[in-house]
Amino acid sequence: MTDILERLADRQGSGPLNQPGEQDSGEDRALERFLKFNPLKFIGEPDPEIAENWLERMTNIFAALDYTEDRRVNFVAFQFERVARAWWDMIRGKWERAQTLWTWENFTRKFNEKFLPPLIHEKREDEFIKLKQETLSVAEYEGKFTKLSKYVPGLVINERRRIRQFVQGLNVEIQEGLAAAQIFTFTEALEKAQRVESARMQVKDFHNRKKNFPSRISG
């Protein structure tokens, strides 16, 4: 914690502060909230799966925290060590010289260029195109669909295409249950698919109980 606060103070010391006490107090509280999520360190492992999972975890944390863009970048950089720290120090120097905005978009783009090579993006694109529900629940399928869709923005460029791609990957029986439904948003597609899934499960359970009932009586 002390090390983090020292680095934060160094970063903030480069700019003027109108009210240092209030600014420091606000940053301390924001940092405390961030650390309560137990963010993982990242040392720059060569395994792209580790980098991908780490960035996803950081993204999810900041989705729950209403932080400014530069604060997100500042805080996430505190989790870097060793190779990742050396890389970030280089990027930070370039940004400061070029006066690049400290935005989450700029950060993730640079991070992906370094730790998620094009081959990984191609692999994820292929996984998305071939993704089918099969033995997954609708919720599990949606989770994979959403995670992989960020690698193929062209296929989910608008709501209509996103819905169509999602429905095409569902099992046939669920697609049939959605055939007559009016769907205008992705959220509606997910909710209605889950309702169809739930109804089919109830019918299946009913028939299983009915099939086993005579055997229990005869026994």
Rank of each mutant, 00 (worst) to 15 (best):
M1R: 07
Q19R: 08
L178K: 12
F62V: 05
P118C: 09
L116D: 03
E159W: 03
V196T: 04
I61N: 04
R124V: 00
I61G: 02
L148W: 05
A63C: 08
G177K: 03
S198T: 13
Y151A: 07
A98L: 07
R124H: 09
D89W: 02
Y67D: 08
E197Q: 15
E69K: 04
N212W: 11
R109N: 08
F186L: 13
E122N: 15
V83N: 10
A139G: 06
R82T: 15
Q182F: 05
N171E: 09
P214M: 05
G21D: 10
Y67C: 11
S149D: 08
K114H: 09
I120H: 14
Q23S: 15
A189T: 01
L40R: 15
E22F: 07
P46Y: 05
R209S: 00
E96H: 05
I157Q: 10
F80R: 06
G143C: 07
F145I: 04
P214C: 06
S198A: 15
N74V: 03
D205Y: 10
E52T: 10
Q79P: 01
L190K: 14
A193E: 07
Q202H: 06
F128W: 03
D28S: 07
A98F: 01
F145M: 00
G219A: 11
R97Y: 00
T68L: 08
A199H: 04
F111G: 00
I91R: 14
E49N: 06
N208I: 13
Q79L: 08
E6S: 12
E27L: 15
E49W: 00
E188A: 09
F37M: 07
D3M: 06
A181M: 10
Q202L: 12
T185V: 10
T68A: 11
N53P: 02
P39E: 04
T108Y: 01
Q133C: 05
D205V: 13
I217E: 08
E122T: 14
N208M: 12
E22L: 11
R164A: 14
G219K: 12
L17K: 09
S198W: 10
G219H: 13
T187L: 05
F75A: 01
K132T: 14
E140P: 01
E140S: 15
S218R: 06
T103R: 02
A139Q: 14
K94L: 06
